[in-house]
Amino acid sequence: MSHLTDLPPWAAIAVCALLLLGAATTLIGSLGLLRLSDFYERLHAPTIATSGGTILICLASILCFAVLQGRWVFHELLIIFFVTVTTPVTLMLLGQAALYRDRFEERQDVPRKPRPALDEE
C-alpha cells in the first residue's frame, strides 16, 4: 500500500531522520505548553514547534516527493513561509492581550505601563 518503500535507502533514511527529528521537536514544544507554569513562559513554547518542527517536516516532505516523482516540488516552501511569518504575529497579539488583561485586573507580577496618564495607543 505504501509507496514510501519505493524510496532508495539513502533517501529513506534522510526522510525518516528529518521526520522523526521534526516530530520530536514538535512534541517538546507541546510539552513546554504542558509543563511551564506561567502564561508568559508558555508563550515561548509554540515557536519551537513552528520554527523547528514545521521546517524539518516540510524538508522531509520536499525530499520525499522530489525523489519519488523525480522532480522538485517546492509546494512545502509556501507552508514554511506562511507558518514562520504568521506565528510571531499571533503570539505578539496574544501577549499584548494577556498583558492588557493582567493590567486591567491589576495583577502585581506584571510591569506597569510606563506613563499611564497619556496612553490609549
Partner: peptide, 16 residues
C-alpha cells in the same frame, strides 16, 4: 492547529 497540520503532512509522506 500547527500540530494537526504537521500530522497531515506526515500522512502525505506516508501515503505518498
Amino acid at each position: 492547529y500547527v500540530n494537526a497540520m504537521l500530522l497531515l503532512l506526515s500522512f502525505g509522506i506516508r501515503t505518498a
